[in-house]
Nucleic acid binder design. Structure first.
Length: 485
RNA sequence: GGCGACGUAGCCAAGUGGUAAGGCAGAGGUCUGCAAAACCUUUAUUCACCGGUUCGAAUCCGGUCGUCGCCUCCA
């Protein structure tokens, strides 16, 4: 059984989908006015992993993630760049797909856009007005928070506390300072839609209430987003949705932690963010995935070059193990070289991994278990010199497959290990001033010298290659080389 | 000011009351002509600090200190 931490109750709860075996999930997507940064990547990746794991566990998942394609930020940015809001939003949705496709993020089942659901939002606002939970003021419509019992429940605050320390602008149009806008009258030149309250555009919060209701119903299983969305966005969604239906909105609220830089939140306002594509120039997608999943999704994750380099070394270690297993051959060895304890470790990997992941998607623990299994399998391959008994070969191959399958839940180890290692080698080699032919020529010369036991000459060649960044490894099958970073 | 999260080795990080996973880095060893890679061994009597509950606490409770976040747009 899967346990998930629910922000609403501040406890881990068993996942019990409303419809047996079918999980309905809504996640807040981007406001499309700029490139996505590594913090966004964490959000996409966390929910990508959650969806993959739920499906792995046999659930049918309906996954919705919206695009906010109308908003003040979009309008402002569009004005700066002298393009239409629509063109700007469309452009950054395209850029979003470029980034997420490179990261291997699965597409949600539906990706509704706010601008395509204006009638649904208007309908919802009208219902709120009819229930007297919303009121028109000038050309705007506001939600009346004081009349919604339980406002603040998700974020654990009450109206009095919020007002006391709030840095809220005085707005004559609001009856209560915490009231929030549902419909905003448009100023000249701004994008606008017709409504019973005049021309205008929807507020930010109403779109998620309207679109989730349309596609998932009045009550659904999981609503997700970043921790910064808890208040006010998700609090307001609950007020709007439960306000109209009188029913619970989402049963479980999942909020992931931030990516920080030097322990400070990465954000556009602090201008300390790194875009996904900037990082992809240096590191391949699976490195970013390993970095993200090495910490539990609710904890903050500090970004640094060193952390990514660690992740890259770790990924190499996993691929090296798979390549090593692929290189094993059965040459008629009879006796098993695997201890009972090690065999047990490999055979129980899947079960232990599921136990970790069932506990609120503990990828950090899950990864630890994968590394643990890899360690054992490396040992076996080493012990038998890549020539295991038929029984051991079977264990290794099954173990390798399990590692690959489980890593796949995090989108890891999806490449052929030999291809991964070779392509990485080539990429590194491109940065060096030496060709493969030159390297192989020098290795041949060195082999000749070594055959004559002219160690000094051989070592000289090895040193020269090292200056180019090439590291030699002498094994029983001859000399291999690697590019040293 | 209100609300919340976090503090585990040199660094990163898991740990759902039963005696501290895993990764990186370091040290010693096996292998090697010497190396490298790989493997083995090793590195926290202790989990910010102080009290309490318990047969038993990194885990639960109270307090102190520190860091971060939300309360304004944010993943």
């Amino acid at each position: 059984m899967i346990q998930i931490y629910n922000t609403l109750t501040r406890k881990k709860e068993l996942l019990k989908p409303i419809e047996e075996g079918h999980v309905k999930l809504y996640v807040c997507g981007i406001t499309s006015y700029d490139y996505c940064h590594i913090g966004h990547a964490r959000s996409f990746l966390v929910f990508d992993m959650i969806v993959r794991y739920l499906r792995y566990r046999g659930y049918r998942v309906t996954f919705i993630r919206n695009f906010t394609d109308i908003d003040d930020k979009i309008i402002n940015r569009a004005n700066e760049q002298k393009v239409s809001s629509e063109d700007l939003a469309n452009r950054f949705i395209k850029e979003f797909y470029l980034d997420t496709d490179r990261l291997g993020i699965l597409r949600p089942d539906l990706e509704p856009r706010a601008t395509e659901h204006i009638p649904e939002m208007i309908e919802l606002i009208q219902e709120l007005i009819d229930k007297d939970l919303a009121y028109q003021s000038g050309s705007d419509v506001y939600f009346r928070v004081a009349d919604f019992p339980g406002y603040g429940k998700l974020s654990g605050r009450n109206l009095e506390d919020m007002q006391a320390g709030a840095r809220i602008e005085v707005n004559e149009k609001k009856q209560h300072p915490m009231d929030f806008v549902l419909w905003k009258g448009s100023k000249p030149g701004e994008p606008k839609w017709d409504s019973p309250w005049g021309e205008g555009r929807p507020g930010w919060h109403i779109e998620c209430s309207a679109m989730s209701r349309k596609y998932l119903g009045e009550t659904f299983d999981i609503h997700g987003g970043g921790q910064d969305l808890v208040f006010p966005h998700h609090e307001n969604e609950i007020a709007q949705s439960t306000g109209t239906t009188g029913k619970p909105f989402a049963n479980i609220w999942i909020h992931h932690g931030f990516v920080t830089i030097r322990d400070e939140k990465m954000s556009k306002s602090l201008n300390n963010f790194l875009t996904i594509r900037e990082i992809l120039e240096q590191y391949q997608p699976e490195v970013i995935r390993l970095f993200i999943f090495s910490t539990h999704y609710r904890n903050p994750l500090d970004f640094s070059e060193a952390a990514l380099q660690d992740a890259e070394i770790g990924l190499d270690r996993l691929y090296d193990c798979l390549a090593r297993i692929a290189g094993c051959r059965d040459e008629g060895r009879k006796k098993s070289a695997v201890s009972v304890k090690d065999r047990e470790k490999i055979e129980s990997l899947q079960q232990r991994f599921e136990y970790a992941m069932d506990n609120d998607f503990n990828t950090a623990q899950g990864l630890g278990l994968l590394f643990d299994a890899v360690k054992v399998m490396n040992k076996v391959v080493q012990t038998v010199q890549a020539k295991p008994s038929a029984e051991d070969l079977d264990l290794l191959q099954k173990g390798g497959e399990t590692v690959r399958e489980l890593a796949g839940i995090m989108g890891l180890l999806q490449q052929d290990p030999v291809v991964y290692i070779e392509s990485k080698k080539r990429k590194l080699l491109d940065r060096l001033d030496i060709s493969v032919a030159d390297i192989e020529q020098m290795i041949t010369e060195r082999a000749e010298a070594r055959q004559k036991k002219d160690w000094a000459a051989g070592d000289k060649i090895r040193d020269r290659l090292l200056e180019y960044g090439i590291e030699l490894q002498d094994g029983p099958e001859g000399t291999t080389w690697e590019v040293k970073i």
